[in-house]
Computed example of a mutant assay.
Amino acid sequence: MKFIIQRDKLVQSVQDVMKAVSSRTTIPILTGIKIVANTEGVTLTGSDSDISIESFIPSEENGNEIVEIQQTGSIVLQARFFSEIVKKLPMDIVEIEVGNHQSTVIRSGKAEFNLIGLDAEEYPHLPQIEENNVFKIPTDLLKAMIRQTVFAVSTSETRPILTGVNWKLDNDDLVCIATDSHRLALRKAKINTEIQSSYNVVIPGKSLSELSKILDDTSDLVEIVITENQVLFKAENLLFFSRLLDGNYPDTSRLIPSESKTNLTINSKEFLQAIDRASLLAKEARNNVVKLTTLSQGMIEISSNSPEIGKVSEEIQTSEIQGEELKISFSAKYVMDALKALEGTEINVDFTGAMRPFLIRTTHDDSMLQLILPVRTY
Rank of each mutant, 00 (worst) to 15 (best):
S306V: 01
S306N: 15
S306Q: 05
S306W: 01
P307H: 03
P307A: 11
E308K: 10
I309Y: 02
G310C: 06
G310E: 09
G310A: 03
K311W: 00
S313W: 03
S313D: 11
E314W: 05
E314T: 12
E314A: 04
E315H: 13
I316D: 03
T318A: 04
S319M: 04
S319K: 14
S319T: 08
E320W: 03
Q322E: 15
Q322Y: 06
G323Q: 06
E324M: 09
E324T: 11
E324F: 06
E325T: 15
E325M: 09
E325W: 01
E325V: 09
E325C: 03
L326I: 14
K327D: 15
K327G: 05
I328N: 02
I328A: 01
S329D: 06
S329C: 15
S329Y: 13
F330V: 07
F330T: 04
F330D: 02
A332D: 05
A332V: 11
A332Y: 12
K333W: 01
K333N: 14
Y334V: 00
M336V: 04
M336Y: 02
D337A: 08
D337T: 12
A338M: 11
A338G: 15
L339T: 13
L339R: 10
L342F: 11
E343A: 11
G344N: 11
G344C: 07
G344V: 12
T345I: 05
T345H: 05
T345F: 00
E346F: 08
E346N: 14
E346P: 00
I347K: 02
N348M: 11
N348L: 14
V349A: 03
V349W: 07
D350T: 07
F351R: 05
F351K: 06
T352C: 04
T352G: 02
T352N: 15
G353R: 02
A354Y: 03
A354H: 10
M355S: 14
M355T: 05
R356W: 00
P357Y: 10
P357N: 13
P357C: 08
L359E: 10
L359Q: 14
T363S: 14
T363V: 15
T363G: 01
T363D: 08
H364C: 00
D365A: 03
D365C: 01
D365F: 02
D366H: 10
M368A: 15
M368T: 13
M368P: 00
M368S: 15
M368V: 09
L369S: 09
